[in-house]
Amino acid sequence: MTFIAKKLAAGAATVLASSLIIFLALSRAPGDPVALILGPHATNAERAAMSARLGLTDPVLVRYWHWLTDALHGDFGNSLLYRQPVSGLLGPRLMTTLILVGLSALIAVATGVALGIFGGVTPRARPLVSAVTGVGTALPGFVVSSALISIFAVNLAWFPTFGAGHGFFDQLWHLTLPAIALAMSSAAYVAQMTAAAVNDEAGREHVATATGRGLPRSVVLRRHVLRNAAIPVLTVSGLTAASLVAGSVVVESAFGIDGLGSLLVKSVASKDYPVVNAASLVIVIVFVAVMTVLDISQTALDPRLRERA
């Protein structure tokens, strides 16, 4: 149990450190929030009053402390562009992004592991699997998005061209194409790594011994090959899920989905710093959460890692 506590603490420390780095970096950004709020016609006295009210006259670490304590109460300040609380903007979008990433992780891991095991246990199919995954890992999400929109949304009209939909099933329908676009290169990567891991295990002595003992091929595969290959495959799958969080930024923008990622890009373009700060931090939290879950499940599966830690 202590190792779980340790990993959770490490995750929390990572998030805290990232929040400080992002805050400090953004405080150096050009642009004047006072001018943005008051417009060009404000007097100097008004400007000074607003800047004091926003706390901009305080040292940066004091401002960070205020921001952090507010953030822990769920208050990320107000958006300069939307003129409403940032937390209200984040909530619904976080849900959309989580569904997109979850759906996409499911597709990537399922197809990747299936293709990888197939490639790993059937040597004759290996050149084909190697070619497919070699091309697949080099398919960028934004290009796949455009291709899928053109084929399945415009020409065949099977799916909507943009938006995230309302209600669970409508959302699933809207998010299917984006999830496939996001999953494509990750699926190929998982397949590559799974095939390599299965191939590695299949060549081990204990597998030869098991075969020599006359065990049926299916039992050898299940008990001796796949079981040992599961740990690297789990690692790759988890890392992939984490990278999907970052990749969602691109795919959401490509499909015009109102998610965390597209909110981040929009607020970066419009210099809406409170939103940039909060959205990037929430993305970092999702990312770190996925990594921590991966880490804990890995250690739980493989006791050797626990002893070493």
Binding site: T14, I22, A25, L26, R28, A29, P30, A242, S243, V245, A246, G247, V249, V250, L264, V265, S267, V268, K271, Y273, V276, S280, I283, V284, F287, M291
Partner: peptide
């Protein structure tokens, strides 16, 4: 090890916010 886990795309997006 710590730097390795930072997603490049995300850093590039935030860098665009700060440095243009």
């Amino acid at each position: 090890d710590v730097m390795f886990t930072v997603p490049g795309l995300l850093v590039a997006v935030i860098a665009a916010a700060i440095l243009g």
